[in-house]
Every structure is written in structure tokens, then in C-alpha cells.
Design a protein around this nucleic acid. Structure first.
Length: 954
RNA sequence: GCGGGUGUGGUGGAAUUGGUAGACACGCUAGACUUAGGAUCUAGUGCUUCACGGCGUGGGGGUUCGAGUCCCUCCACCCGCACCA
């Protein structure tokens, strides 16, 4: 029987499906293990060879865990709401539901082709009403809760209104933007609308005015990544920031817990760092500065209260609420002019041009509460409205930006810290001794910080405060293809949650997907849907992409439950995700949001764990080689002139790079990839505008269907292309579809090859050339069972010691390597093992049956086939992973490297049971060592039993 | 600028605790079998030298009997963050 991957793989895929081999039960005595892949957005272009890398790794791990006796949950689904489908709908009129479903089918086919052990009965699609019913339900819970800072958890909003009824809000410590204090009487006297507005300042899901990227020309709101350099990516139209009433989630309430609990999870250091940077905790003081001639105060936040004696001016964000009031009539013109300038600048410009400081003087003065000096109040774009309080006390001696600002506008600078004891310390380092600071003089900075904090509090100038960079997440999208909000508004605009019984609120059908006027979602045009009931209108925005993906891993636990998002029984069995595999692009967004949702559900008592993902692995990107041909920029005649890259570089021609479809290339992926005449013809068929172009290479010139040799004996073109490693993408024509590779080599080979490329976490270019090595390995593996004539070779003989040793070396290494997710080295071990057994001509069942199971997680099809060939009747998935027996690795003798002064001079076999002294003696008497030590003094001999011997001579 | 990571043959990569650097492959060279080979098998393959030997894990320095691995310093590339008070 010959190794025929195509037949084998088809056969076993069907068997697995027919026998429901990968169906997982929630009722099991086995320990649980949950392996999760970040689910894909089903894009129109399908999977390329880079996408399955993580899926293969997680599939191997799942299969391995199952063979080790775990009940393994390994599900898959689709993040199916999203902008591309909607944009496609706008241009083609095809309903997003339809195109999304087609894409899902295509993905499913591609995934199935790779032999994954997914339990498809648990598939989720975020766009499915039976799924987004629960996304809406969780949103309503967020709407119905606030965050209590004393209890440190989310509490139902009814409990808050009960407190308001009794005591007002003075005693409430909550995560809130509510500033005004009110009494119980005041609360009761408020109108329904006023109450709604106040509660919005407490709810975890709430409405507030936020800014969107509005593009007048396209008549739509754009996502941040659709805006490039202040203009729309499509069309290049101007984009302005427009205020809009939008839903947000109060993730900031959970900032501290999101930061603290990073200690609980096994993520890479860089991943944790990215998250903690994003959260951006800083400790400092909130302080109020009096304004000369005004009752108002300016609130600031500072991490350096110690430098207060050096605070010689203040800066407000240009958008700060007090700016208008503080601006004197003399300064009005210059302030207005400056604000106009700021408005003209895009967010991107304000962020990218850091060097230049700009600002304007308001004409007003504040009082430094420590020096009692009057200090000028400026506005400047380097102070951000959204960070801290939107106002700073400026200390030009100890902050680079304040210093540049003071320099430019001639403001007073007082040195308050002597850094002479700390050479190399920069302005921002919290190091030095206080000077020019009255009673702080002589103190070290950390002590001075503590002292000023105490004084600020005792003098009631402010208080200690912790500040976070993390912002609340904007949760509204002015789009059609997302989850509708289960919210209606009455005539006064008060938000009312829908009755949970009436969920899901389904998306209405639509034919025209263009946005409605005024930046509203297309839903605003569906009048009979918007009119919920007499006087009540529905919210017409939809939820963002991260809504559905923030909790999907919980749905997999009990995917078809119509009563709950997942039953408590299922959640308590599966608990959390043991291993999460996905790309770094979700490092902050998705992971942060889903950790936040999970903590909220934990507060509600609905999940038993504080963190959703125990361990995270980030797979690297598989890059593609991009092949370019050079088009000369200066041509002698009218025709386009393509030129061999070698020639162009030698001559120093100015050229444009034209990407070429990689299928046209000969020797693709190698350093001397080129276009032959055949390839040039294919290129011309593809790009007819170059039909008459000239293609020049060292061998000759091809033009108008004819190749004229310039070198003797040349019969074909060898137009060398320029190769670069880059993204695998449609626009570079270098996308490799896994289906094509599977068609040629089989999915077992594909799986092994992707793992063999290198560590999962690392990015690496796709290189089809070396796949042959893995294919050869599979055939050699097969040849342990069948010879070329097709005879079955397997015998029942007792294996030799050497054969056991080869097998158990592999068992040991593969087990260890899987445990540390080093899959590439596992494949090497398989090769070493098979090479070794072939050398021994070992066709013994006892050895081979263990080897089959060892390989099964990586190459499940061929393993299943051979498992049955050697006489098993049930699936290899129900076998037990081979146990390592150290007895087989015990050696009689050990090869010792013998070194002189650390340099290896001999390699000798010594009996394993020799003592250190015996080894030393034997080594010194070796003939090949004698010549190195003759006439020299032996200073020392180092013997590490079972490792090495080193002789130190003078 | 700050934070994290990476740097090893012609190529992808291996070396788990400081102990034989280059496993396993690709590629290349030679040979065998073949009408043929982009099939298969065998041998070789870090660089350098006729050889003995010498040199070798981005550069320089250090610790050690011994360093790819630990320490210091510099360089290059990748990722993340960035007017963050």
C-alpha cells in the first residue's frame, strides 16, 4: 500500500464526522482543559497560509491534552459583524448577512481541509440573533449597574437610587463623572430627565457627548483607521471632529483591577507591559488653584507636587471650560486666533508635531498656594483636554515641555531641584535635592513629594489622587451591521432599557445600506422599526466589533442554551480558558475589553474566575515574499521598458517597482527568482497595458512575442526579479492559499510544515521550497509500515534495547517540547526518531504503535490510518499518549568530551559508573591528551559526571 | 524619547539549569540506481588552511576551569506607547 495522503485524509475526515469524534460533553469525570483560538473575522478573501498557524498549534495542543486524559474544549466560531461586509453591501447591494454567510462557508471549507478537532456543534456567530441576544443582555446589565469604589464591585443601579432617596449623593464613592453634590430632597425634586442625566454619570453603560470623525463628502462617520493624515483614506476628503451623543462603557472603573490582575495571568512580559501602559496608572495630587479676581478655581493633577515652588505659570487645554471666562478683553483677539489655529489642526497633527510649542496668554492670573505668587494662565495645545483635568501647573525647571514653553514665551524659571548628586539624571527623573523651595530645601525628592502631599491635604488644597490614562470605551457605531441597542427613548430623550423578555432585538431587513443623513446609521431610515411605540423611539446606532468578541468564550461552554448566556453548571465546569492563542494585534483592544466584561460578570456572580484567560500565546505572522520587476523611469522610446534587477542595479537605472503575481515567477522564493518567456507572457495576459513593453535581461530582450538573444546560446529570458519579504496580501499578489498546499502535499504535511518553520511566536516568511523535507519525512514514516512493493512490514518481535532507546528519547523530548509550546522541535524529534528506526530496520508493532500516538496530534490523518492498519478498531484520539520510561535511556557508557583549557581535544567513551577520580585518571592517561599536557603543569581537572572533563594546564 | 523583544552557517532554525555550538531540515557538491529526474538512496557540507592548526553565536569589554547562555557597554532591526502633567 502506498502513502496516498489525499485518499487517507478524505477517509478519516468523514469517519471523524460520522462518529462525532470531536464532540465534547459538559458531563465528564475527566479534568477539563479549554483551548481557545481568537475567532476570525470571515473576510471576503478567505484564509491565507498565515492564518492557520495558531489554529494548528492550538489543535496540536488540544489533541495532546485529550490523549493525556483531559476533557478538552476546542471550539471555533466567527466574529461576523463588521465594516467590510457593510461597505461591500453599500457598493454591491448584497445584504451583509448574505455575504457574511458565504464567507463563513468558505472559511469553514478551508478550516475543514486542515483536519482540526473543533467541536462544531458549539460554533458561534456574533451576528446570529440567538447569540447577540446575550450580547444585548449583558449590555443591559452594564446599563443597570454602577461601580461602587468602597465595595470595589459593580452594584445594581436601584441600590444607588435608594441611597439618593435617603441621603443624596454626598456619601457615595463611585466611579462617576458626577461632580455636583445633591441632597435627598434635591434628588426627589429633580425631573425624570434630570435624574436620567445624573444616573448616566454613574451607569457602567452610559451616554455622553463624544467626538466622531465626520466626513462631510462621504456623508458618514469614519473609524480611526479609515482616517489617514486628517483626510479620509477613501477619496482623501477632509474629516472633522464632530460632537455626538454616544454610548460609552465605563471601563475606567475597572482600571485598577485590570492592572492588578495582570499578576494572575500567564501572558508574555511585552503583552503585560502593553496593557499596563495602556492603563497608564500614575500617582500624584489633585490640587485647586485660586484665580485672581474670580471665585472659580482651576483643578489640576500633578505627579510632582514637590516642584510646586517652581510652578511659575499654568496651562489649560484650549478646549478647557474656563478659557472663555479667564480671557481678558485685551487678550481675546490673540486667544481666539490661537483657538482657531488649534481647531484647524487634526488630532494626528497635534500628536505628530511634538517639537514646536505653541500657546497664548489668557490675561488672567492664578495664585500659587505655596509661594502666594500670582502666576499667569496660558492655554496651549500640548495640554490635552482628555487627560487628567485638562490643566497643569507648569514647572519649567523640571519638565521638558514646560521648559520649552517658558523659553519660547519668556516665562519665569526657578530651579527647584539640585541634581548634582545624580549625574545623568534627566528632568523627568524623580531624583535630587530640593532648593529654592522654602521649607522643603535639603529634602530628597521622594521625601519632598510625601511632605507636599501631606500639606496639600492638611491645608485642604486638594488630595492624593491616582490617575489613569485609560479612557472609557466609546460603544456606539453609526452603522447597520452590528448589534442593535436594546434601548428606546421617550419624548424627553430619556433612555429606557428594553424588557429582557423581548430580547433579542433583531436587525430589521434593509435594502439600501448607505448611511442616513446627519451621520446617523442606516437604521434611522427604517421608520416603522424606529417607532417602537407611541412616543418611544429606538436607538439607531449599533454596537462596535468588540461587543460580540468580549464574551464569546463563555458562549462556547453552552452554545445552544436559549435560557441563559451559558448555564451556571457549564460555566462552573469549564471555568476559564486555559490556553488562548492569537495575534498581537489584539494585545490591548480585545483583551482589555473582554477582561473588563469578565470582571463585571464576576461582580454579578455569573462567572467563578476573575480573569478569563489563564495563558496567552501570540503567534507570529507568516510573511510573504513580494516579487517586483523593475520598470525603467526614463525610456529611450515610447514603449515601457522592464529591466532585469541585476542589470538595473549595475547600471544605476532609476526604476519603479511593479509587483508581479508570484505564480508567474520561476524559482519563486529563491534569491535568483526570475521571469522566463512563459512568465512574461502570463504577465502580459494579466496586465495587457504592457503588451508591447520591452523586457530586457542579460540573455536578451523579449518584445512583441519574440525573444531575441543577446548572449550566445541563450534561448530563454531570465529577467531577475527583485524580492522583498513583506505582508502576505492581495495587493502584492503573493497570497498563498492553504487549499493549494493541501491539494499538493496533504493536510498532515501542511500542519507539520507550518510547525516546522520555527517557533510559533516568531514571524517568518513563507517558503514553500523546504516543504519537501516534511513531505519526505511522512513518506519515510510510512515506509516503517509498508515497503515500496506495498507489503505490510509490521512484526510482533520484541524490540531491542536500541530501538526502545530511540522511541523513548523521542517520547521524552516531544512531551517536554509540547508542554513548552515548542512545536518546531517536536517535528525535528519525529524526524530523528524515524531516521533512527529506519536505520535499525525496526518494523516492530510495540515501537510503532507508540510512535503513531506520539505523532497523532501533529499529523492526525496518517496516524489514524496507520493506527487502524496495525489492528485497532477505535479512533487514535481515544488512545493514551505514550509515557516516558527513563529505564530505556540508561546507558552503559557515556561519550565524554575531554578539553584542555576549555577546548575540546578528544571525545571518548567511558563506562557510566566511573567515579570522578576514575574519570580524571582515565582522561589524563589518554594518548591523544598526552601530547597536550606533556611538560606542562596540571593546575586543575574539572569532571562533571555524565557531561564533560576539562583539564586546566599552565 | 520610553518600554518590550530579536540578532547563531548560503537559508529556516536547534542548543530546557553556564558544560561537545550549528540538532533537524532546505540548499549546495560528489556518487549510486535510472531512457530521464525537480524521484529514491549513499557520502560530504560553519569559515579558513595543502596540512598541523587557527577563527567562529551583531561589535567591544568582563566574570568563570568553561559563556550563544551571566554582567557592563555599543550597534542594527522588529513590535508597542508617546505633548500623559
Amino acid at each position: 500500500m502506498q502513502y496516498n495522503p489525499r485518499a487517507i485524509e478524505k477517509k478519516w475526515k468523514k469517519y471523524w464526522e460520522d462518529h462525532q469524534v470531536y464532540k465534547v460533553s459538559n458531563d465528564s469525570d475527566k479534568p477539563k482543559y479549554y483551548v481557545l483560538d481568537m475567532f476570525p473575522y470571515p473576510s471576503g478573501s478567505g484564509l491565507h497560509v498565515g492564518h492557520p498557524l495558531g489554529y494548528i498549534a492550538s489543535d496540536i495542543f488540544s489533541r495532546y491534552k485529550r490523549l493525556c486524559g483531559f476533557n478538552v474544549l476546542h471550539p471555533m466560531g466567527y466574529d461576523a459583524f463588521g465594516l467590510p461586509a457593510e461597505q461591500y453591501a453599500i457598493t454591491t447591494g448584497v445584504h451583509p448577512a448574505k455575504s457574511t454567510e458565504e464567507n463563513i462557508q468558505r472559511y469553514r471549507g478551508q478550516l475543514d481541509n486542515l483536519g482540526f478537532s473543533f467541536d462544531w456543534s458549539r460554533q458561534v456567530k456574533t451576528c446570529d440573533p440567538s447569540y447577540y441576544k446575550w450580547t444585548q443582555w449583558i449590555f443591559l446589565q452594564l446599563f443597570g449597574h454602577y461601580y461602587d469604589n468602597d465595595k470595589n464591585k459593580a452594584i445594581p443601579i436601584e441600590q444607588l437610587t435608594a441611597i439618593f432617596d435617603k441621603n443624596g449623593n454626598a456619601s457615595v464613592h463611585a466611579a462617576t463623572t458626577q461632580e455636583e453634590i445633591f441632597t435627598a430632597e434635591e434628588w426627589k425634586s429633580f425631573s425624570a430627565k434630570q435624574k436620567d442625566t445624573i444616573l448616566m454619570n454613574y451607569r457602567l453603560a452610559y451616554r455622553k457627548v463624544t467626538f466622531v470623525n465626520w466626513c462631510e463628502a462621504l456623508g458618514t462617520v469614519l473609524a480611526n483607521d479609515e482616517v489617514k493624515d486628517g483626510v479620509s483614506e477613501r477619496g482623501g476628503y477632509p474629516v472633522e471632529r464632530r460632537p455626538m451623543l454616544q454610548w460609552s462603557l465605563r471601563i475606567t472603573a475597572y482600571a485598577q483591577r485590570l492592572l492588578d490582575d495582570l499578576n494572575e495571568v500567564d501572558f508574555s512580559d511585552s503583552m503585560k507591559k502593553m496593557q499596563s501602559n495602556w492603563i497608564g496608572r500614575s500617582e500624584g495630587a489633585q490640587m485647586f488653584f485660586d484665580i485672581v479676581g474670580s471665585d472659580q478655581k482651576i483643578e489640576i493633577f500633578t505627579t510632582r507636587p514637590d516642584t510646586i515652588f517652581g510652578a511659575t505659570y499654568m496651562v489649560l487645554a484650549p478646549e478647557h471650560d474656563l478659557v472663555a471666562e479667564l480671557t481678558t478683553s485685551e487678550q481675546k483677539a490673540s486667544i481666539d486666533k490661537y483657538k482657531e489655529y488649534v481647531n484647524s489642526r487634526s488630532e494626528i497633527e497635534r500628536m505628530s508635531e511634538v517639537k514646536e510649542v505653541t500657546g497664548a496668554f489668557t490675561g488672567s492670573y492664578a495664585i500659587n498656594p505655596f509661594t502666594n505668587e500670582e502666576i499667569p494662565i496660558w492655554i496651549g495645545e500640548y495640554v490635552l483636554k482628555d487627560y487628567g483635568t485638562g490643566a497643569i501647573m507648569a514647572v519649567p525647571s523640571d519638565d521638558d515641555r514646560d521648559n520649552a514653553f517658558a523659553d519660547k514665551f519668556g516665562l519665569k524659571i526657578i530651579d527647584v531641584i539640585d541634581k548634582s548628586n545624580y549625574p545623568g539624571a534627566t528632568r523627568s527623573d524623580k531624583l535630587g535635592i530640593m532648593i529654592n523651595s522654602d521649607y522643603l530645601n535639603g529634602m530628597e525628592v521622594p521625601d519632598a513629594i510625601e511632605r507636599t502631599l501631606q500639606d496639600i491635604e492638611s491645608r485642604a488644597l486638594g488630595k492624593r489622587q491616582v490617575n489613569f490614562r485609560l479612557r472609557d470605551a466609546i460603544y456606539s457605531r453609526q452603522r447597520y451591521w452590528g448589534e442593535p441597542f436594546p434601548i428606546t427613548y421617550d419624548a424627553e430623550g430619556i433612555a429606557h432599557p428594553m424588557n429582557e423578555k423581548d430580547l433579542p432585538l433583531e436587525l430589521p431587513d434593509l435594502e439600501d445600506f448607505k448611511p442616513a443623513s446627519g451621520g446617523k446609521s442606516p437604521l434611522a431610515r427604517v421608520e416603522n422599526w424606529v417607532e417602537f411605540s407611541e412616543g418611544y423611539k429606538r436607538e439607531t446606532d449599533t454596537m462596535p466589533g468588540f461587543a460580540g468578541s468580549s464574551w464569546y468564550f463563555l458562549r462556547y461552554m453552552d452554545a445552544n442554551n436559549p435560557e441563559e448566556f451559558a448555564s451556571q453548571k457549564a460555566i462552573n465546569y469549564w471555568q476559564d480558558v486555559d490556553l488562548y492563542v492569537g495575534g498581537t494585534e489584539h494585545a490591548v483592544g480585545h483583551l482589555m475589553y473582554s477582561r473588563f466584561w469578565h470582571k463585571f460578570l464576576y461582580d454579578m456572580g455569573l462567572v467563578p474566575t476573575v480573569e478569563p484567560y489563564k495563558k496567552l500565546i501570540n503567534q507570529g505572522m507568516i510573511q510573504g515574499v513580494i516579487e517586483f520587476i523593475y520598470l525603467k523611469k526614463k525610456v529611450d522610446d515610447d514603449s515601457n521598458h522592464f529591466i532585469c534587477s541585476k542589470l538595473a542595479e549595475a547600471r544605476g537605472d532609476e526604476v519603479a517597482k511593479i509587483p508581479v503575481y508570484i505564480d508567474f515567477i520561476s524559482n519563486y522564493g529563491s534569491s535568483n527568482s526570475f521571469l522566463n518567456v512563459d512568465g512574461i507572457k502570463k504577465f502580459i495576459d494579466w496586465r495587457p497595458e504592457f503588451a508591447n513593453a520591452k523586457f530586457e535581461c542579460g540573455n536578451g530582450i523579449f518584445q512583441n512575442g519574440e525573444f531575441k538573444a543577446s548572449k550566445e546560446g541563450a534561448t530563454d529570458s531570465s529577467l531577475i526579479t527583485h524580492s522583498e519579504v513583506g505582508k502576505m496580501s492581495k495587493r502584492y499578489f503573493n497570497v498563498v492559499n492553504p487549499d493549494d498546499v493541501v491539494e499538493k502535499y496533504g493536510s498532515d504535511c501542511f500542519r507539520l510544515f507550518e510547525m516546522f518553520l520555527g517557533p510559533v511566536e516568531q514571524s517568518k516568511p513563507w517558503d514553500t521550497q523546504s516543504i519537501g523535507g516534511v513531505s519526505k519525512f511522512l513518506r519515510r514514516f510510512w515506509s516503517l509500515f509498508y515497503n515500496e512493493a506495498g507489503d505490510f512490514l509490521v512484526t510482533q518481535d520484541e524490540p531491542t534495547k536500541d530501538e526502545y532507546k530511540i522511541l523513548h528519547t523521542a517520547i521524552k523530548k516531544v512531551r517536554e517540547n509540547i508542554e513548552r509550546f515548542s512545536f518546531n522541535t517536536c517535528v525535528s524529534e519525529f524526524m530523528i526518531c524515524v531516521n533512527g528506526l529506519l536505520q535499525q530496520k525496526c518494523y516492530k508493532q510495540v515501537i510503532l504503535q507508540d510512535l503513531i500516538v506520539l505523532v497523532a496530534p501533529f499529523a492526525p490523518h496518517v496516524a489514524e490510518e496507520l493506527w487502524h492498519q496495525i489492528g485497532n478498531k477505535t479512533t487514535v484520539n481515544d488512545a493514551a499518549y505514550p509515557e516516558f520510561n527513563p529505564a530505556y535511556l540508561v546507558e552503559d557508557s557515556i561519550k565524554y568530551p575531554v578539553s584542555i583549557n576549555g577546548k575540546k581535544r578528544a571525545l571518548v567513551d567511558f563506562p557510566a559508573d566511573l567515579s570522578k577520580d576514575q574519570l580524571e585518571e582515565k582522561a589524563l592517561s589518554l594518548e591523544e591528551i598526552q601530547k597536550y599536557i606533556e611538560g606542562k603543569t596540571i593546575r586543575k581537572v574539572i569532571v562533571v559526571p555524565k557531561r564533560m572533563i576539562n583539564i586546566v594546564v599552565a
